[in-house]
Design a protein around this nucleic acid. Structure first.
Length: 365
DNA sequence: TCTGGGGTCCTAGGACCC
DNA sequence: TCTGGGGTCCTAGGACCC
């Protein structure tokens, strides 16, 4: 048995994926119970006349065709009397900590679970090493749903798989407030005829490229020639897409705390900027804001990048490696501003971004 | 309809070195 | 005069996810 051929993680018979239902909207309803049952749209600064997009819509709002990523102005046209709320990151951070602490405290088979946090509202979970009898994973999944609800007042869905990929995809079938199981035995029955972009990691662009190769469904992807995919889509991505088609994923659930590689700040301006002195000022301000996060990590920045978006969709990025890693606000701001010299200045700026990549931690990632 | 903001990882091509 | 082959680092940009 070679590692390259493994479809499942060694030593983890079951992988569970926990995903909070409409997390951001649910947190808002939790602290404003009077909003229960109403169409709630969270996004931007909560003003649907501004530039901004929907972060999360409640299920009541989704009934009207409003969803994540939609411009707030369009959402307001679809549901003029929806409740629009600003994004409140700290509130979601706090709720997320509660959820993850609840999950981390669970035992399965007599030992603590292994928990891999994926973001605010998602986590993978597996039985810890040395566990005893696990029983029916569906029963454990229902226990998870009950415990999270009791501890936090939030509903979640749980996907069960024989690896992370299948557990993650299973969750979508269980939503909302449900449990779904997807394994090697049922993979093609459930996923075989679905489009390739139903897979986690294949988006619109890759689906289109695959369609150009005559690959439209998950089953066709699984049956395709891995060498052709490697030639067309790259030596790493090609074979990886081929594995996705089979539902294979040997990566284990890993509780190692996340070490950020980089931090960035972006801002879309309500009015486009055409004064380049002002643009330089904004780049300095953004750099100072990113530096707060970098300082918290305790590692200096090794690279500096900027992103400039013009109207409507032209985005350019520029970056440089610093001669010496640095946390000096002046040094970093000067470096970021210097990158503006490499950008054509013949249009008004709609969005600016500054990104600081940190040095590798001791011992690597 | 008109497109946020936080991230990660991969690829291609050029520069440079031996 | 015309020119290998391997390696690393840097930069720009693409794609994807939540």
């Amino acid at each position: 048995m070679s590692a390259a051929m493994a479809d499942t993680p060694p030593g983890q018979a079951w992988v569970l994926h926990v995903d909070l239902d409409q997390f951001i909207a649910a947190v808002e309803v939790l602290r404003r119970p009077e909003l229960a049952g109403l169409p709630v749209v969270v996004g931007g600064r909560g003003d649907p006349t501004e530039r901004g997009v929907v972060s999360t819509a409640s299920y009541e709002a989704r009934e009207f065709g409003v969803g994540s990523g939609m411009p707030l102005r369009l959402a307001a046209r679809k549901i003029p009397d929806a409740v629009f709320l600003p994004v409140d990151g700290p509130a979601y951070d706090a709720a997320s900590v509660e959820v993850m602490d609840t999950l981390r405290a669970l035992e399965w088979g007599g030992v603590p679970v292994v928990l891999e946090v994926l973001g605010w509202d998602e986590a993978f979970l597996a039985a810890g090493p040395g566990h005893g009898e696990l029983g029916d994973p569906r029963e454990f999944a229902e226990r998870i749903r009950a415990e999270v609800l009791t501890a936090t007042g939030l509903h979640c869905s749980v996907g069960i798989g024989d690896n992370k990929l299948r557990a993650k995809i299973a969750t979508d079938f269980g939503k909302p407030r449900g449990v779904w199981q997807l394994t090697e035995e049922t993979w093609f029955e459930v996923m075989g005829e679905r489009p390739t972009d139903a897979l986690w990691g294949i988006g619109r662009k890759t689906a289109k490229k695959l369609a150009g190769l005559g690959i439209d469904t998950v089953r066709q992807l699984a049956d395709s020639d891995a060498r052709v995919l490697a030639a067309e889509l790259g030596p790493t991505m090609g074979p990886w897409y081929h594995r996705l088609g089979r539902g294979a994923d040997p990566s284990p659930v890993d509780a190692t705390p996340w070490v950020p590689r980089a931090h960035g700040r972006e801002e879309t301006y309500q009015e486009d900027l055409d004064d380049w002195d002002r643009v330089a000022e904004e780049v300095r301000a953004l750099t100072r804001r990113v530096l707060v996060d970098v300082d918290r990590e305790g590692r200096p920045a090794a690279r500096v990048g900027i992103k400039v978006r013009f109207r409507p969709f032209i985005t350019v990025s520029r970056s440089l490696t610093l001669p010496q890693p640095s946390r000096d606000p002046e040094v970093l701001a000067d470096a970021a501003v210097s990158l503006l010299d490499r950008v054509e200045r013949d249009r008004a700026v709609r969005l600016l971004g500054v990104r600081l990549e940190m040095t590798e931690p001791e011992g690597g990632y």
